[in-house]
């Protein structure tokens, strides 16, 4: 079964579902989660999509350093949930092209699955095509 799972984290509601599912999978498989947020090189005001339910009503993050702080907050929220559930987790904040960075993380840490939250496969085809490991889409 899976030992090391890459969880792609972003600001969409589906990402929160993927995080819950990743922690559940980790408990079942005794796997370690690598929760990873990829910041774009150039941050625009639209870099954050809809806030997750958990963050709804809170101030939206702004470009640049505020987006970085927001990303860390989301990662540490997941880490705190993992701790409560006795799940091993590592946090990564990368900057660059999303697909390239995720593939590099998979390669660097020899991960064996990628999990992400999305309502549609649109926009993910190239990553799925290039991924050397199983890709799980959670909606």
């Amino acid at each position: 079964m899976y030992q090391k799972v890459l969880l792609y984290v972003d600001d969409r509601p589906e990402s929160e579902k993927a995080a819950s599912e990743a922690l559940r999978l980790a408990r079942v498989c005794d796997a370690r989660i690598f929760a990873t947020w990829v910041m774009p090189e150039t941050v625009t005001p639209t870099a954050l999509a809809q806030p997750t339910k958990r963050r709804a009503g809170k101030r939206k993050a702004q470009p640049g350093s505020e987006l970085e702080e927001h990303a860390w907050s989301r990662l540490y929220e997941i880490e705190d949930d993992a701790f409560e559930q006795n799940v091993r987790i590592s946090l990564l904040l990368e900057t660059g092209n999303r697909d390239d960075k995720l593939l590099a993380v998979i390669d660097s840490y020899q991960l064996d699955a990628l999990m992400l939250g999305t309502r549609s496969i649109a926009g993910w085809e190239a990553l799925i095509e290039r991924s050397p490991v199983a890709v799980m889409l959670i909606r």
Binding site: S65, E68, E69, W72, Y76, E77, D80, L93
Partner: peptide, 17 residues
């Protein structure tokens, strides 16, 4: 103090990068 704790971790991580 969960929310303050998460915010502190996030701010410190950003700061130290």
């Amino acid at each position: 103090k969960k929310s303050e704790y998460i915010a502190t971790l996030a701010r410190l991580s950003k700061f130290l990068r």
